[in-house]
Nucleic acid binder design. Structure first.
Lengths: 107, 107
DNA sequence: TTATTGTATGAGTAAACAATCATGTAGTTG
DNA sequence: CAACTACATGATTGTTTACTCATACAATAA
């Protein structure tokens, strides 16, 4: 697999609202599935699939402890990337606001 | 639309090998579609769709000049994010290499 | 005007995705 | 052992994606 495809996989593993929510939850350290799925408001099975997906892409790691499986972020770069994406969103919001002001509102 | 969904849109706009190729092409400044699609080895229509997609997500901007339309990156953060994704890929490659060494190869 | 060039887009298709429900599995407790 | 808990996964479904081919549109040139 090419480096470009691997890069795309990393990005794809982050490019989904539910998964972004999970990533943000994991900012403060590891959490088990039974903590995560109520926190994000999705079914256990759905949450588990998202976690598996991010695990296989390499951005998460897991640690088993008895019945529970704790997931955590493997690379701090993931959080940096989310931060940059949020910056872009802010810039875009500012730009859109400027455009509306220039063109005038339609209400 | 929530900030989280907007973030996911930004990431999704980058999370595809062809689009990553385009983004890397645009590192050195603006290019028109007729330059981009031969460079990335895709059809003009397909290339145009990817460009439209990235334009609508806000990570690209366009400038018309006669018949040609020049696309360029709107936010430097996009390149920073690609750089971070590449770092993760390198870390993952190193980790996988270590695992193979530990477990021994199967050849 | 017509022809040409550069780009966008409708229609169609195969594949991937996200979600759900039901079920399976592994570890724990009684 | 059986019952329970935490998690993963098969089967299914509706939606989205990436791509192609053909065509439309817009600006320029003849």
């Amino acid at each position: 697999m090419e480096a470009l495809d691997l890069c795309a996989d990393i990005l794809k593993a982050m490019a989904q609202p539910t998964r972004l929510r999970i990533i943000k939850l994991l900012r403060d350290g590891e959490h088990c599935v039974c903590e995560i799925f109520p926190a994000i408001g999705h079914e256990q099975s759905n949450t588990s699939r998202h976690l598996q997906m991010m695990l296989k892409s390499g951005i998460l790691k897991q640690r088993k402890d008895g019945l529970k499986i704790y997931y955590s972020l493997r690379h701090t770069e993931v959080l940096e990337m989310v931060g940059l994406a949020e910056q872009i969103v802010v810039h875009e919001a500012e730009r859109t606001a400027r455009l509306v002001k220039q063109k005038g509102s339609k209400s």
